[in-house]
Nucleic acid binder design. Structure first.
Length: 783
RNA sequence: GGGCCGGUCGUCUAGCCUGGUUAGGACAUCGCACUGACACUGCGAAGGUCAGUGGUUCAAAUCCGCUCCGGCCCA
């Protein structure tokens, strides 16, 4: 028997991945909802090109999402795997301002938007390149953008629909306002940071007495809006002051001192002033106590006229001056530094102010029970992340403010009558820019006036993002397509945007269609650095995926992404870990290279060794399908590696080598294997090899396809189905004994200083007698 | 203050739901070895009181209580 492998290269070389990718592009068939098989629609998260390099963890997520698509495909589904790029909202604006050294509010809006439109083009191009390098199977030539007219048109149409249904209203109420971004933001966009701040003890006078009342506050500049001072009802220090009036030391205003349980005796002096608005508690207290709000801070972050001589100053400056003035008059008893949990804007990291503004709201409070019900119906992968969504729904306490005072986002499609201010909404189906477009109405429906003014605001970008399942299924555009693809099958997404993207999508799509937008939510953890810390540019621990992909290849990267950490858990990124996964691909390559020596063989009557490894293969297939069904690639990646390397290669290949070559035992030519036995080995080798390649195909699509085409025909492995566990699993009962016996022989030879080729005298245990021919050949055992 | 998740060889992780082998694997470390595909290899060794503590049980990494530590979320 000749021993020339069909595959001549000695190692897997990632450089050929580009050619394979090209082949896939040529062979691509478009998604057809009417094709054979059930439809499987992935609501792919459109990544945001927010800077370079693209976060290696995010890139890893995309490779995992591709594994989902390929898994569905190999399970017989008809897969729609759209690719999108998110380009709306504040990050683009900030990036544009920096890139072009302009300020959004200082140049004409039109010019600014034009700059924004192309600011991300190069970053986007780089992302697409990375996706290609990773072998993403979605159509990378036809990807969508969230800032396209088609997308924004749909956002506006859904808004008009919900407005007509009465789910949207305008109201002025105290809300989170980010001075850095110049806009109201939703609770979901607020995060918290422990910041150090100064607690100032200010001396108030108690009216009609000689007593002082010390009030501790972190916001002395809000003194002008103070409407009452609270003390704890059980605080004996202040019993005598209750229901008297306190006189503030700057404006001389008299406010009532009232008992209230929200004043904690142990915090500060135990007496707190209630101002509009220091924090969210103030908002609740104003409401509860029926106080009149005084607006102390304007939307530019300056004090209003209500602050008297401090009017016009920035918050921090006003605070410093007011404290200095009070100190001069000895009205500050003391100051201390405390750590204060401060709400900040998630995007700009600026502390939040609470300022009443007139904004549009989408009703969500009344939908809470419904969304809660749906959240319990969705299948979560992993199940444990469901709780994050349930907790958030539970915490939702006000309707969602959806209007933003920003520029590069979908415009609110409303015009107002110049005379009577009546709002007018256009017909859905077109993209409207009311800040510059002429109103599409001739007369006001209320007062018949003919002049209109367009709303200048935009939507919260989550208004766009939350309808991605509708956009990809052609909602309001192609009824037939929509009816066949919606609800979508699966939403893959990161853990940290459950309270925004997952929640808002469930809310909005349910309001619009009455249905849950997807059956499965697949939630991934964060990519963190080698030490388990989050990656950030300031920490200097970011890893650029491009050079890694270039050097090690897409499959190495993907195998790492699959095998490193289990579903939904955070995973550590480091070059060493990625390099480690390349070894397995080389091993796989060489196993295939060895097997490619032997001809493809039809099924024949098999020997026990062959039945044994096929039994193990059946077990492997079953274990892997548990992982694939849960879209958990950690399981197949590790199980296949363990089987391939530690069982198939280390034991089975060694056991049948002689038999496959047909040359009998190493030194004892007297015993030769029959042709039948040889063919049985050939058949088994190829059968197991095929199963391994098929099981790995969704994870390492390049190398599996290269080997498949080389060994089993011209068509791509990605047109195949997963293998079925058709082999009798009973023979796995020998596994433990076989592995143990082989180890024992190797150990003996080593101890006696024998080379592996040399003969040895050793007894084959009774339970393995049926394997003795293969075992004697393998170890060169004397009979 | 409340909630959720986690704590297993140097590092990462499986096992925990459904108690019961010498707690499995990978990387790193240390020996030895060219073996009819593979030195990007093979074989072997060393390395763990399963965070701590109390309980349930014939039996606990696994179930329950408490404590400590870390991460996230919400007040």
């Amino acid at each position: 028997m000749e021993s020339t492998p069909k595959i001549d290269k000695k190692a897997w070389s990632p450089s050929i991945e580009a050619d394979i990718f090209k082949k896939w592009e040529e062979e691509r068939t478009a998604f057809n909802p009417d094709a054979e098989g059930k439809n499987f629609v992935i609501d792919t998260p459109p990544p945001y090109p927010s800077g370079r390099p693209w976060h290696i963890g995010a890139a890893a997520h995309y490779s995992q999402i591709d594994m989902i698509a390929r898994t569905a495909n190999m399970s017989g589904y008809n897969v729609l795997f759209p690719i999108g790029i998110d380009r709306n909202g504040l990050p683009v604006e900030l990036y544009t301002e920096k890139k072009h050294k302009v300020k959004a509010h200082e140049i004409p809006r039109e010019d600014f938007l034009n700059l924004c439109k192309h600011a991300l083009d190069d970053l986007e191009e780089e992302m697409i390149q990375i996706m290609k390098r990773m072998g993403i199977s979605g159509d990378l030539k036809k990807y969508y953008r969230t800032d396209s007219e088609e997308y924004r048109r749909l956002t506006q149409a859904t808004f008009i629909d919900l407005y007509t249904k009465g789910l949207i209203y305008q109201a002025s109420r105290p809300n989170n306002y980010c001075i850095g971004c110049g806009t109201t933001i939703a609770d979901a966009e607020v995060s918290y940071e422990e910041l150090s701040t100064e607690l100032v003890y200010i001396r108030f006078k108690v009216k009609e007495s000689d007593d002082d009342l010390i009030v501790a506050t972190t916001r002395p500049e809000l003194l002008c809006s103070c409407q009452t001072v609270l003390v704890n009802p059980d605080d004996e220090r202040y019993l005598k002051h209750q229901d008297k009036y306190a006189v503030d030391p700057v404006y001389g205003k008299e406010v009532i001192i009232q008992p209230h349980s929200s004043a904690k005796p142990e915090f500060g002096s135990g007496a707190v002033m209630v101002c509009s608005y220091g924090d969210y508690t103030d908002v609740l207290l104003f409401r509860e106590l029926g106080l009149n709000e005084i607006i102390a801070v304007d939307k530019n972050g300056r004090m209003t006229d209500a602050a008297g001589k401090y009017g016009g100053l920035r918050i921090k400056k006003a605070r410093a001056e007011i404290v200095a003035d009070l100190e001069k008059k000895d009205l500050v008893k003391k100051k201390e530094n405390i750590i204060h949990r401060t709400p900040i804007c998630e995007r700009s990291r600026t502390p939040i102010e609470i300022i009443p503004m007139s904004e549009y709201y989408l009703k969500q409070i009344e939908f809470k029970p419904e969304i809660m019900k749906l959240a319990k119906k969705m299948t979560f992968h992993p199940e444990k992340h469901r709780q994050i969504l349930l907790n958030w729904i539970d915490a939702v306490s006000i309707d969602w403010p959806i209007s933003r005072r920003r520029y590069y986002a979908t415009e609110i499609p409303i015009w107002y009558c110049k005379k009577c201010s009546e709002p007018h909404l256009p017909k859905p189906g077109q993209y409207y820019q009311p800040w510059k477009d002429k109103a599409p109405f001739s007369k006001c429906k209320k007062c018949s006036s003919e002049e209109f003014v367009g709303d200048e605001r935009t939507f919260d970008t989550w208004m766009d993002s939350s309808i991605s399942p509708l956009f990809i299924t052609k909602y309001m555009q192609d009824k037939d397509f929509f009816s066949k693809t919606y609800p979508t099958t699966l939403r893959p997404q990161a853990k940290d945007i459950i309270r925004t993207w997952l929640y808002y999508t469930s809310l909005r799509c349910n309001q619009l269609t009455g249905k849950l937008p997807f059956k499965h939510a697949w939630v991934m953890g964060y990519g963190v650095d080698e030490k388990g810390e989050r990656m950030s540019k300031s920490k200097g621990n970011v890893i650029d995926p491009i050079p890694l992909l270039e050097r090690l290849g897409g499959d190495t990267f993907r195998y790492w992404a699959a095998s490193e950490t289990s579903l939904g858990a955070d995973f550590r990124c480091s070059e060493n870990r990625i390099i480690g996964s390349k070894k397995f691909l080389t091993k796989l390559w060489n196993i295939a290279r060895f097997i490619s020596i032997f001809p493809i063989q039809k099924e024949v009557e098999m020997t026990l060794s062959d039945k044994w490894i096929l039994s193990e293969a059946s077990k492997l297939i079953e274990e892997c399908s548990i992982g694939f069904n849960d879209f958990n690639f950690f399981i197949p990646a590790n199980k296949v590696r363990e089987f391939t390397w530690n069982t198939f290669a280390a034991h089975y290949l060694e056991m049948i080598k002689g038999r496959a070559y047909g040359s009998g035992f190493n030194n004892q030519k007297q015993e030769i294997f029959s042709e039948q036995e040889q063919k049985s080995a050939w058949f088994t080798l190829h059968t197991v090899m095929k199963s391994i390649l098929l099981l790995l195909a969704p994870i390492v699509p390049f190398v599996s396809d290269a080997l498949w085409r080389e060994m089993y025909g011209k068509a791509s492995i990605h047109r195949e189905m997963f293998p079925k566990a058709i082999w009798d699993k009973e023979y796995s009962k020998y596994t433990e004994n076989l592995l143990e016996f082989n180890s024992k022989v190797w150990f003996e030879k080593k101890n006696k200083g024998l080379s592996l080729k040399e003969t040895i005298n050793i007894d084959i245990p009774n339970e393995l007698q049926e394997f003795s021919k293969d075992l004697r050949a393998m170890h060169n055992i004397n009979t």
